[in-house]
Design a protein around this nucleic acid. Structure first.
Lengths: 229, 229
DNA sequence: TGTCATAATTGGTCGGACCACCGGGCCACC
DNA sequence: GGTGGCCCGGTGGTCCGACCAATTATGACA
């Protein structure tokens, strides 16, 4: 039994999360005015400073727009927010949005291929060795949760090898989706993981075969996508 | 003559931007402790509340990690932050990072293809008509800045047509890169824009030809990438 | 030398005050 | 009828000073 990290949370974080969930779950519609800072402070029974800190957070998530003297409004976050919202949009109020998950995995297929292809182009021996080690650890794992983590580590190593920092940032954002909704993705791993595509990817990357690596990784992504239906 | 919107800024935003730039430009290295809230307030000559609001923002950008009683440390943002940092990483301290721009455009090629392909699969007549209108406006424009905006609008319409909401969030993030560094990308448009790929994309999307649409849009992205060298 | 209570440091929360800005209503003026 | 000036209540922005809570440094003691 491993203990979870105890998450200590500040009041402002809790408020931000509460209001954030209210917004993404549709309790507030884009354009709606938020209660005033003083009203929120009253409602939550906390100080206005804490509310303000929470609002700053909501603002930087792209969820609300604050105007001096005129209050805060819920913004049209689907056209202003970035991927940092995805973890919370995926299962608002505990209810999974299957279409959104499908969209994510669909895009992931593309990114997996892109990543593997560029990793093959730019790989150097030590990195390839590290990738092989990742694969070894993955194949040795039995616990579902470990498999999940190590599978992601394999992909992460490919991202590093690709040398594309924009891709790295993008993959950070996607990693958060996994972390926030770990249970959601565990279904992709029940009944064991076929590491065949991983092995073929490793081989192709080792030979600098970008086309092969891309195909192998895309195949893996597509199979995960297929398992969703 | 159109007047620009006057942008009013709060103190906390200014502080957040200042510290953010100091971090991404390397003045602080990941792991470094930030000055204490009280010290920052003194240094900037402002109140501690404003500093705290700024720190919340930096925290939600993934740039710093705050621990009760122990101060704030700069986090290893390249492995924790998401795409929302990209606009500022691209030209820290006014100096362009050409490799990062290359990485972005390289990834963009992939995304353009993905977007066009899926748009072709899911397009309906009114959306296609709107896409045609986008192309019309683009070809009618003469001002470089207008071309830049309308070129992006064409892509944005493809994103909408693809029906992939994750892609939409991703493209929001990338849009911010354009907006924050508009001048940087204007070079891609000097000497006019060849709208041939756009026209071929429109045609392919209209016929539901995913492969053709993907190829046309990828070609366009690759040409932009080539112009960078 | 190692341990542990304690003090100092630092972030978290609070209450209250005042300023800056927005929106709407009102009114004089053209 | 329309325009601009003016005022006023509501709301966000900033400040101050105080105290609480967690961490870290300190130093006495065994």
């Amino acid at each position: 039994m491993k203990f979870q990290n105890i998450k200590r949370s500040t009041i402002s974080h809790q408020v931000a999360e509460t209001v954030r969930d209210a917004i993404v779950s549709g309790a507030y519609v884009p354009g709606d005015p938020l209660p005033t800072e003083r009203a929120l402070a009253d409602e939550f029974g906390i100080n206005r400073s804490s509310v303000r800190e929470a609002l700053r957070q909501l603002e930087s998530w792209g969820l609300v727009e604050i105007r001096h003297g005129a209050g805060a409004r819920v913004s049209d976050f689907l056209s202003t927010a970035g991927l940092q919202l995805l973890p919370f949009l995926l299962a608002p109020g505990g209810r999974l949005d299957p279409k959104l998950l499908f969209d994510l995995l669909e895009l992931r297929v593309e990114l997996l291929g892109f990543t593997a292809g560029h990793a093959a182009n730019r790989a150097d021996p030590p990195a390839i060795q590290e990738l092989a080690a990742c694969l070894g650890r993955l194949e040795a794992a039995t616990d579902v949760e470990d498999v999940q983590v190590l599978d992601y580590a394999f992909f992460q190593q490919l991202v590093v090898m690709s040398g594309n920092r924009v891709l790295a940032l993008l993959s950070n954002a996607i990693a958060r989706v996994y972390l926030e909704n770990r249970a959601l993705f565990s279904m992709m791993y029940v009944g064991g993981l076929d590491t065949g595509p991983h092995r073929r990817t490793l081989e192709a990357v080792g030979q600098g075969d970008a086309t092969g690596a891309r195909a192998a990784m895309a195949e893996y992504g597509a199979s995960a996508l297929g398992r969703l239906r």
